[in-house]
Design a protein around this nucleic acid. Structure first.
Lengths: 112, 112
DNA sequence: TTTAATACATTAGAGTCTTAGGTAATACGA
DNA sequence: TCGTATTACCTAAGACTCTAATGTATTAAA
């Protein structure tokens, strides 16, 4: 992003929503999907991604499955029931945040 | 806010836009205006506000005027020409950020 | 007269990121 | 086959931005 500081606080929301939509994904796959969906505007760094995945797992929002691909091991992440609720909540929070920001900045949403 | 971490990186944008709209404002006034515009959803803390104002001034985006109100001194902030450009740029960045986030989260904007 | 509101400010510490680095398997072109 | 890019995981140091707490002082209101 041009303004990487705006991204702060949105990483958990992005991860949880992608997993809610896709069932299960592994770390590298998440970085590629984000790049693709954003049209190259947004690139997740691994130094941010992996600690966040581990934190979400430690908090009980994600569980993992290790799948061997030949000699390489992929680590898939999937939402727990608690993670599912949190995903929905984070999206609501994000939408509320945007509405509030539009009010404060007094700009009216124009998309399309 | 419910999700204060979402606010990170937006404070400069908020300050610059308010000054662009209102000509000049002092710190406390900015906190009150934000509270009012957001319907109480967003409260700027002084520990964030004042260092940010000082930083924007040091970067040449803001200039100041001290006005005596009896024994008390108010410090008004106003945009420099450079600050004016930056304000416009920050708003553009914010809008681009939102559009990107909608793409990544695959939610379609519904307002009203 | 004492509490709330106005008005400025700083500091310690928390949280989230970037940058940089490390390891290793697999795919592909020259 | 040899080097490079890509795939795939990971950690650590440091930067940056915020919150919470604290400090000072004036003015308004109960």
């Amino acid at each position: 992003m041009h303004s990487p500081e705006l991204l702060k606080g949105t990483l958990q929301t992005i991860i949880l929503k992608l997993l809610a939509d896709n069932g299960k994904m592994y770390g590298y796959e998440i970085t590629q999907r984000v790049k693709e969906l954003s049209g190259g505007m947004l690139t997740l760094t691994e130094g941010a991604l992996y600690p966040t995945l581990h934190k979400l797992e430690a908090e009980g929002f994600l569980s993992t499955e290790k799948i061997s691909m030949g000699k390489r091991v992929r680590k898939y992440y999937l939402l727990t029931p608690s993670g599912n609720n949190t995903a929905a909540q984070k999206i609501e929070d994000f939408e509320a945040f945007i509405i509030t920001m539009f009010k404060v900045l007094q700009i009216n949403p124009q998309f399309g």
